[in-house]
Amino acid sequence: MSLHLTDQQIDRVIRLSLEEDAPFGDLTSQAFVPAEAQARAALAAREPGVMAGGRVFARAMGAVDAGVLVDLRGAEGAPFQAGETLAVVTGPARAMLTAERTALNLLQRMCGIATLTARYTAAVEGAVSAAGRPIRITDTRKTTPGLRALERHAVRCGGGHNHRSGLSDAVLAKDNHLALVGDLAEAIRQARSRLPHTAHIEVEVDQYEQIPAALAGGADTIMLDNFGLDDLRRGVELISGNALVEASGGVTLETVADIAAAGVDLISVGALSHSARALDIGLDMDLGLNGKLRAD
């Protein structure tokens, strides 16, 4: 799956969001705002953060009326400060008001994820794995249904990396898969025989004693799930470069640096998407392009 966020992915989310929010139009704007009114608004950051989703915001604002124009002021992945103007929006006032909440919901969500991801990546900056590779902070499949492409893009904007896109993208045998097999090493070998030669096999283990079988089966990545730091270090030493080592489970900003110091290659953090707080960003509407909310 391409890492590039496509217009098609963006527009699908926007269409569903607008259908949910204004299935029969915007009654308030139609009742209060003249049809000919033109307006201007500033997209204002109420707190510091990292930009993600500028193109999403712009396409959402223009989805109701192509006459709505968005002048983005910040690049994706760029930090911003409280009080900074992130974009200026001009165009038909009714359309701007109808699209406002959809556009802000998506932008606030994406900026929140990018900002949290940047904090995690900063916490492990400069750390390398036992194999000498820079340690990657990655997301997981614990995303908001329907928003995965947008949330994965936000993780990249924050300096993180993406794990598999979905179940069709890569092989990851987790605890519930392994509960249904007997010999782990043989199960991995059998899986390899059924897969294309290009497929990468990752296996999750939640006990140190499972690692030898995962190695014997030829797993390409071994995920050490909810390991304590001592067992994490022991696991890295036992794997000894024969597979990539991923740490996962309950990772927090307080623990991520110690986990990185254990020598793992990857740290997957579900909190990047399932616990990121929407950033406080607002759309401040002027009275209008001509000083009042109507056309002259």
Rank of each mutant, 00 (worst) to 15 (best):
D7M: 01
Q9T: 11
Q9F: 07
V13W: 02
I14L: 12
I14D: 05
E19D: 12
D21W: 15
L27V: 14
S29C: 01
Q30W: 12
Q30G: 13
E47L: 08
E47P: 05
G49W: 08
V50M: 13
V50E: 03
M51A: 11
G53M: 01
R55T: 14
A58L: 10
R59Q: 15
G62T: 00
G62Y: 12
G62W: 01
G62V: 02
D65Q: 08
L69V: 12
D71M: 07
A78R: 12
Q81V: 13
Q81A: 15
E84Y: 03
A87L: 07
P92M: 00
P92W: 02
M96R: 11
L104M: 05
L104N: 01
L116F: 15
T117V: 02
T117A: 13
R119G: 12
Y120P: 11
A122M: 05
E125W: 14
S129V: 06
G132F: 00
R133C: 06
P134G: 01
P134K: 06
R136M: 12
D139Y: 04
D139C: 02
G146W: 11
L147Y: 15
R148L: 13
H153A: 11
A154V: 04
G159H: 05
N162K: 06
G166C: 02
G166Q: 06
L167S: 07
L167I: 08
D169P: 02
A170W: 02
V171Q: 06
A173D: 03
D175T: 10
N176D: 04
N176T: 10
A179I: 10
L180K: 10
V181P: 05
V181L: 06
A185W: 03
A185I: 03
A187G: 14
I188H: 05
I188W: 01
R189G: 00
Q190E: 11
S193C: 06
P196C: 04
T198I: 14
T198W: 12
I201D: 04
I201R: 02
E204G: 07
Y208V: 09
I211F: 01
G217L: 00
G217V: 03
T221H: 01
I222F: 01
D230G: 03
D231Y: 08
V236R: 01
G249P: 00
G249W: 03
V251W: 02
V251I: 14
T252L: 06
T252V: 10
A261K: 08
A262K: 06
V264D: 06
L266C: 04
I267T: 00
A271T: 10
S275R: 08
D280S: 09
D284H: 12
D284G: 04
D286S: 15
D286C: 09
L287H: 14
G288D: 06
A295M: 12
